[in-house]
Design a protein around this nucleic acid. Sequence first.
DNA 1: AAAACCTTTACGGATTCCCGTAAATAATAG
DNA 2: CTATTATTTACGGGAATCCGTAAAGGTTTT
Lengths: 221, 221
Amino acid sequence: MIKKVLIAEDQECANMSLQKALEELGITDIDYVYYCDDALASIQRSKHSNESYDLLITDLSFEEDGRLQKITGGKELIQAARQVQPDLRVLVFSASREAATIETLDKTLDADGYVRKARNDAKELKEAIDKISKNQRHFPRYIIDLVKQKNAHDFTRFDIAVISLLAQGTLQKDIPAHLQKSGIKPSGLSSVEKRLNLMKETFDFSKNEQLVAYCKDMGII
Amino acid sequence: MIKKVLIAEDQECANMSLQKALEELGITDIDYVYYCDDALASIQRSKHSNESYDLLITDLSFEEDGRLQKITGGKELIQAARQVQPDLRVLVFSASREAATIETLDKTLDADGYVRKARNDAKELKEAIDKISKNQRHFPRYIIDLVKQKNAHDFTRFDIAVISLLAQGTLQKDIPAHLQKSGIKPSGLSSVEKRLNLMKETFDFSKNEQLVAYCKDMGII
DNA sequence: AAAACCTTTACGGATTCCCGTAAATAATAG
DNA sequence: CTATTATTTACGGGAATCCGTAAAGGTTTT
């Protein structure tokens, strides 16, 4: 059963809506914060006073402003929170539709649910909270499709490094040196060329510029 | 004075928060829709029954779903709405931070204000509505900086065409043919090369990939 | 209409990239 | 330890690009 909830969401509007949705579910013990660091502090404090939260609802991306923060995003917050309180349920509420991100939340960070800011998000939130309170997980259908679609190509750490370097203006022939400095293997020029070719073939692209544009669109870089 | 408001926002949560913010300002005559087409229909209907809206608050991007829509985004909605009711005030509420987009809203579409979904967006919304009701406009400070920054280089129709072609995988040497087909002048390969060089020099870039990445980030292509 | 100026295009050498093949190295199996 | 396989790297010829210079085509001034 979910009684005590913490909301970590920097958008005031979204934060308000989350509170309202929870109240409509009969959950009244709600704290809300606008920064990740505040969220972690609240979790620590409530744990020490034996009033642990049952659920954390968090956004993924938090805007930077004057206040310098240790934790800058939802993913890091989830990890830090679980270190403090491993049994904490986590529901992510974000606008992101990146398959890679959502897959990480599901598989690696072991979040209990994901609701995307979109049409009917309020209804879906209630549904998700309901399911989580019954020890179920909530990752919507369309994500499975997205993940499949994305898996037309798995962008490895290597791929992303190479494309990022290109997008930063690094000459192709200079990429091996940069890769070595970052300790990424392989680092040979031929490996870079081969991998770029593979990616371009996969997507039926002809030029690196296309690859950069695609990765920008997909939020991969 | 603003009495009657229409909200066009597909995210249920954001829509709810907008309603709440308006109510806190003492505005009670609120309609809300989740689709652009519905918004336009409401505007037409209310105008014909002499109960025109004073203000339209709209998002920019609307999610596609099963319902096929004629108007697919906030920009088109603004244009269509102004055709029906030229004196309609428009406040845009979106997560976009692209300078190009916001500049278009200000200069071309002549929106009355822009509030970004971010920290303190609820407060800013109220401020914006207050200003608009006093016949002022509300475009936040940081946008001016963004626009300035962007205007380090004026991207011409020619520039955008060339960079777009690159991002689509067109070989540089094939670009002249495409430009001619689109009736864009100049179209010589040397002109393309020269212009690319100028742009790269302006931004201190070394490669086309960098230019593509930048234009993607800025929403130029 | 000639001169001066600016824009666009043409050309060519140096560099970089593309791409196929082959060698070298690492990993796995027998 | 050797054989087999897979991965990584090296090499080289051809294509595309970068970049500087010069010619061609327009426009404005006098």
